[in-house]
Amino acid sequence: MGMATLDSAQPSERDVTTADTALEHVTAYLARHPDPAHTVRVVVQEDDEELILPRAAVELLATVLAHMAAGRGVSVVPAHAELTTQQAADLLNVSRPYLIGLLEAGEIEHRLVGKHRRVRADSLLRYLRRDDQRRREAADKLAALTEEMGLYE
């Protein structure tokens, strides 16, 4: 299994503006064509060349454009890619020691290669989804408690 390289595209001011405009068009197109089996035909303006893209790729492109429009850099990592603990920590925006604690607690699946830990990108994404769900549930409970106590106005 190969190690992932995390190349990041950092948007310039011009890229942010272009991404914002493109995002409006892409999301509007996807909303008008909700069929998940639908492929997307893209015409390149300079030479009228047609590209046929899977809808999933265009949905991923919309996500990339949204991040770029917000001025954030973007990295694309295949789900099966193995990450070093530092790469995984960087993607979670946590320290490496904190990530090691998550690995040792069984929160994120990993394997040992010699004495080095490797984290599959899909394991990291599963952890993020579970963590997001826990946070939403905690926020919902807090909101309900606040309302129950009459503090919510």
Rank of each mutant, 00 (worst) to 15 (best):
M3I: 07
A4Q: 00
A4N: 00
T5V: 09
Q10P: 07
Q10L: 14
E13C: 05
E13G: 03
D15M: 06
V16P: 00
A19Y: 00
L23R: 04
H25L: 15
A31Y: 03
H33P: 03
P34M: 08
P34T: 10
D35Y: 11
P36Q: 07
P36F: 04
H38P: 00
V42C: 07
V42Q: 02
V42M: 09
E46F: 08
D47E: 12
L51Y: 14
L51Q: 15
L51I: 13
P54Y: 06
A57N: 09
E59K: 05
L65G: 00
L65K: 01
A66T: 05
V76N: 12
A79V: 11
A81S: 10
T85M: 07
Q87Y: 03
L91P: 01
L92Q: 15
S95M: 06
R96E: 14
Y98H: 15
E107R: 09
E109H: 09
L112N: 10
V113R: 12
G114I: 06
H116S: 12
R117E: 04
V119R: 00
A121Y: 12
D122E: 15
R126V: 07
R129L: 06
R130P: 01
R134Y: 13
R136D: 14
R136G: 13
A138V: 15
A138Q: 15
D140L: 14
A144K: 08
T146L: 11
L151P: 01
Y152M: 12
